[in-house]
């Protein structure tokens, strides 16, 4: 059974079609990449999946649960985490607080318990801290624990955002351009983290990325999108040679 079933989804803004009938499925543990030129609707798919946008038509199922049009916090609690194209960290908060925010849905104590900070609240917080420390280790973030993340370099912020998503212990991870604006070395590091995540945690990942080298190296299957319509879906080798894909990216020879 597939983990994600994205079924004939339509999303438009005032008549402009952002997604016009996209369907795909993602299996548990699969790395599914979505590529396409700017404005193809890749991030819109993420926004529909995570609940930020409500599609006009179609159905989205996640882990057997119909999540179409559900509020984002419900979808997050169901086990979906994402990163953003432009880093959306809480810049005033420290690295630890950002990662602890990732644990939010796993902490169960209420406001009254928080006031007293005894028993359950303290136990859960300490446990959350311990699991956050594993992520700090995993992503080599130890030097930055108590620094407000807004002050840290861009590459580190991208890594922290990945860490915050991992702290949610999701079933599915959406990565929106994880290596955008990174140099070669940082890209290689990020690729290694993504491989490690797959290997150690077995997470399903949907990856949106413009770095074709990265996509072709990592993805199990690739979907190519143009103007909100899927062109083709298949293994990297299949996609690379597809004539429609070449046309979408490079255009065609002008008729003389």
């Amino acid at each position: 059974m597939s983990l994600v079933d994205f079924d004939d989804v339509h999303l438009s803004f005032a008549g402009v079609n952002a997604i016009a009938g996209v369907s795909f499925t993602v299996a548990p543990g699969e790395l599914f990449a979505i590529i396409g030129p700017n404005g193809a609707g890749k991030t819109s798919i993420f926004n529909v999946l995570s609940g930020a946008y409500r599609p006009q038509r179609g159905r989205v199922t996640f882990g057997g649960l119909d999540i179409t049009g559900r509020p984002p916090h419900r979808i997050a609690a169901a086990g979906l985490a994402r990163t953003f194209q432009n880093v959306e960290l809480f810049g005033n908060l420290t690295l630890l607080d950002n990662l602890m925010l990732g644990r939010h849905t796993h902490l169960r104590y209420g406001t009254l318990a928080a006031v007293a900070w005894l028993g359950r609240a303290r136990r859960e917080e300490v446990a959350a801290r311990a699991s956050v420390e594993e992520i700090v280790d995993f992503l080599d973030l130890a030097p930055y624990r108590r620094i407000p993340v807004g002050l840290l370099p861009y590459g580190v912020q991208k890594r922290i955002e990945l860490g915050r998503a991992l702290a949610m212990q999701p079933k599915l991870l959406l990565l929106d351009e994880p290596v955008a604006g990174m140099n070669l070395e940082e890209t290689a590091d990020m690729a290694r983290y993504i491989l490690d995540i797959r290997e150690e945690l077995g997470l399903a990942i949907i990856l949106v990325e413009h770095d074709m080298g990265l996509v072709m190296d990592l993805a199990d299957r690739v979907m190519v999108l143009n103007f909100g319509v899927p062109i083709t879906t298949g293994p990297p080798a299949h996609v690379q040679g597809h004539p429609e894909v070449v046309r979408a990216y490079l255009g065609e020879a002008a008729a003389v």
Binding site: L93, M100, L101
Partner: peptide, 20 residues
């Protein structure tokens, strides 16, 4: 967790929702 949620709402409410 309550105070952190407050901060998250203050700084980026959309991201806060997506954090659950």
């Amino acid at each position: 967790r309550v105070g952190r949620a407050f901060n998250a709402i203050r700084d980026r409410d959309i991201a806060a929702g997506i954090m659950g």
